[in-house]
């Protein structure tokens, strides 16, 4: 069991690293799906059978589809150049956080159950934690509203505006104000960061 877990963990982490390193977004999404699949297997081997299946279908399946869909809409753009935070600093910060947490959690591994105890998800979900589920319904609903709000096309005649580049966009904004302001203030407006 330990060896299997070790392999799964290494595979999942490697997939995660690859997802970040990948040049193309599509690859990144696929590596994420891979990581998700390995994590689902870890779940299964730890006894969390039901959520393993959920994770496999939602995490590795649905989410990947969503990513692919979004990438196809937004375009698979390759971004050149250095990241904002120097890589060395990023490695250091992330590494220190990991070390700190490991150091704190090092003793927490003591209780070792003899056998993985699978227990019913349904009881926990629908009876013991029903309040969570109710709150979750509100969450999902607001999520749907949010999605609709973010993606819905404008009803009015602004449709032409939606495909402008940022520079044109800000010019339009200025133009909208031009009717109301003096040229002097307009120059200031344009100079604003």
């Amino acid at each position: 069991m330990v060896e299997l877990l070790l392999i799964l963990v290494i595979a999942a982490v490697a997939c995660a690293i690859q997802a970040i390193r990948a040049e193309r977004l599509l690859n990144s999404a696929l590596w994420l799906a891979g990581a998700s699949a390995f994590i689902a297997m870890i779940f299964y081997s730890m006894g969390a059978r039901e959520v393993a299946i959920i994770e496999l279908s939602v995490g590795a399946g649905l989410v990947t589809v969503l990513f692919v869909f979004a990438i196809s809409v937004a375009g698979d753009e390759s971004i050149e150049g250095r990241p904002a935070v120097p890589r060395a600093l990023a490695v250091m910060l992330a590494g220190l956080c990991v070390i700190g947490l490991i150091w704190l959690l090092r003793d927490l591994t003591a209780p070792t159950p003899t056998a993985a105890s699978a227990s019913a998800l349904t009881n926990a979900l629908w009876h013991e934690r029903a309040l969570d589920v109710l709150a979750q319904v509100a969450l999902i609903f607001t999520g749907v509203i949010g999605l609709l709000g973010l993606l819905a096309e404008p009803r009015s005649a602004h449709a032409a505006e939606t495909h402008t580049t940022p520079v044109e966009g800000s010019q339009q904004k200025i133009a909208a104000r031009a009717t109301t302001e003096s040229p002097l203030e307009l120059q200031k407006e344009a100079a604003r960061p």
């Binding site: 990241p83 904002a84 935070v85 600093l89 990023a90 910060l93 992330a94 220190l96 956080c97 700190g100 947490l101 704190l104």
Partner: peptide, 24 residues
């Protein structure tokens, strides 16, 4: 206040580190 998302995230990581150090 660079307005760069990556640096903002670095703030989160840095704060976690500092809080860990202080609490521990």
């Amino acid at each position: 206040q660079t307005g760069e998302l990556n640096w903002n995230a670095a703030g989160i990581a840095g704060a976690l580190l500092i809080v860990l150090i202080i609490l521990a």
